[in-house]
C-alpha cells in the first residue's frame, strides 16, 4: 500500500438516534429499505425475515422463511416483489406489499448467499455455490449461467448498462450478459475475491481479497491495480455516488482511494481512524460525501470525507452487521449481531 496521508482529524458528536430495538432473534445478515422508504427488511441467522415500520421501529410482520438461516432479504426495484434467500438452498419470492408467498427457486443443497434484483425489471439473480440463475418473479428460469468453477462470492449488476452484471470468486471476476449462459469476459486474478463492486459510473470494478488486498480493474480496458498491505481480508467496499472515492475496510482504519485525475495509482489514500477493532461494514450515502462505517467494536461512525468536519458516533456492545441508507441520504439504519436494529438521522 502506498504511504498513507496523515489521518483526517475529526471532532466526535453523538449520532442522533430515532429508535433502537431488538427486532430479530439472531444475527442480522441483511438489512434493506423498501423502495418507498417506509419499511425496513431484516434477514437473520435464525431463519426469520422481519418487516419493520421505519417511522416507529415496530415490527409489522415476521416469518420463518428458511431452515437454518436467512442470508438476504430484498425488495425488487419498484417494490412490487420481495425475495429472501437462505441456507436451505432456496430463494422465496413474495408479494412486495402483502408478503404472500408467490414462488420458490431451488438451488439444491447449497446455501443461497446472494440475490440481486434487476434495476429495471422483475428478474432476480441468485447465486448458490457455483450455481448462478436468473429467474422471473414466478420462479421460472430465465437463464442458467454455467461456467463457474469456484463458489460465487458476490454478484453485482452494472449500474449503467442494463442486463450486464459481474461476479467474483476465487481466481478472478467474470462479466456476464443475461442473454448468454457463458461469461462474456474474465478478469483473472490469482486470489480469492470476496466481493465485487462497480463504481456508479460503471467505469471501475473493485474487489476485496481474502489475503488483505483490494483489486481494481479499469473498464473497458481491463487494466488492473492492486492495493495490498491491509491488516485483514477486505470484505468492505463502498463507492461514493460520484465514482471518485472508493472506501475500503480490511482493518480498523478505513482507507479511501481517490480516483480523481490519474488516481488512485501513485496517490496516497485518505485514512480514517476511529474504530477500535476491524471495520465490518462501509456504506457511502446515496448522495454527497458522507460515509457510514460499522465495526466489530459496535460503533457506527458517520464521516464527512470531504472536509475535516464533524464525525458522528453511536456505540453499542454488539458488532455492527449491516448499514443501509434511505434513498434521500438522511436516514441510516444499522443492524447488529445481537439482532438489534437502530435508525439514525444525520442532520
Amino acid at each position: 500500500m502506498p504511504q498513507k496521508e496523515s489521518s483526517v482529524e475529526h471532532t466526535l458528536a453523538p449520532l442522533p438516534e430515532i429508535w433502537k430495538k431488538i427486532t430479530a432473534l439472531d444475527y442480522i445478515s441483511d438489512v434493506s429499505w423498501s423502495p418507498d422508504g417506509n419499511q425496513i427488511a431484516c434477514a437473520d441467522a435464525s431463519g426469520y425475515v422481519s418487516i419493520i415500520a421505519a417511522k416507529t421501529g415496530y415490527m409489522s410482520l415476521n416469518w420463518h422463511a428458511h431452515k437454518v438461516g436467512t442470508l438476504m432479504a430484498r425488495w425488487s426495484h419498484d417494490g412490487k416483489y420481495f425475495a429472501s434467500a437462505g441456507q436451505d438452498g432456496k430463494v422465496r419470492i413474495y408479494d412486495g406489499a402483502s408478503f404472500e408467498k408467490l414462488s420458490t427457486i431451488d438451488h439444491g443443497g447449497n446455501w443461497v448467499e446472494h440475490i440481486a434484483w434487476h434495476g429495471q425489471r422483475d428478474v432476480i439473480l441468485s447465486a448458490a455455490g457455483k450455481q448462478l440463475k436468473l429467474s422471473n418473479a414466478d420462479g421460472s428460469l430465465v437463464q442458467n449461467f454455467t461456467d463457474h468453477k469456484s463458489t460465487i462470492a458476490d454478484v453485482a449488476w452494472h449500474p449503467v448498462v442494463p442486463d450486464l452484471f459481474a461476479t467474483s470468486s476465487y481466481g478472478g471476476a467474470r462479466l456476464w450478459t443475461i442473454s448468454k449462459h457463458q461469461h462474456k469476459r474474465f478478469l483473472d486474478w490469482k486470489g480469492s475475491l470476496l466481493n465485487i463492486s462497480y463504481s456508479p459510473n460503471g467505469k471501475v470494478l473493485a474487489a476485496g481479497c481474502q489475503d488483505g488486498a483490494a483489486h481494481i480493474w479499469l473498464l473497458p480496458s481491463g487494466e488492473d491495480l492492486f492495493m495490498n498491505g491491509y491488516p485483514t481480508k477486505v470484505r468492505e467496499l463502498s463507492w461514493d455516488s460520484s465514482s471518485r472515492y472508493l472506501a475500503t475496510g480490511g482493518g480498523a482504519e478505513i482507507i479511501v482511494w481517490d480516483f480523481a485525475g490519474k488516481g488512485p495509482s501513485g496517490s496516497k489514500p485518505l485514512v480514517f481512524s476511529g474504530h477500535e477493532s476491524f471495520v465490518s461494514v462501509l456504506k457511502f450515502a446515496p448522495q454527497g460525501l458522507r460515509l457510514a462505517s460499522g465495526g466489530i467494536d459496535g460503533n457506527v461512525l458517520v464521516w464527512d470525507i470531504n472536509k475535516k468536519g464533524k464525525t458522528w458516533l453511536s456505540s453499542d456492545t454488539s458488532e455492527v452487521s449491516g448499514l443501509s441508507w434511505r434513498a434521500e441520504g438522511k436516514l441510516l439504519v444499522a443492524s447488529y449481531a445481537s439482532g438489534g436494529l437502530a435508525l439514525f438521522e444525520i442532520p
Binding site: Y27, A45, S150, Y170, Q210
Partner: peptide, 30 residues
Amino acid sequence: EIFEMNNGCICCTVRGDLIRILGNLMKRRD
C-alpha cells in the same frame, strides 16, 4: 475448494469453503 494464498505457494493453501461456512456459522447467537 482449495485456495492458494499470496504467491500461490503450496504451504499457504486453505479451504475456501470452510472459511465461508465456518465464518457464517459463527455469527449465530446459539
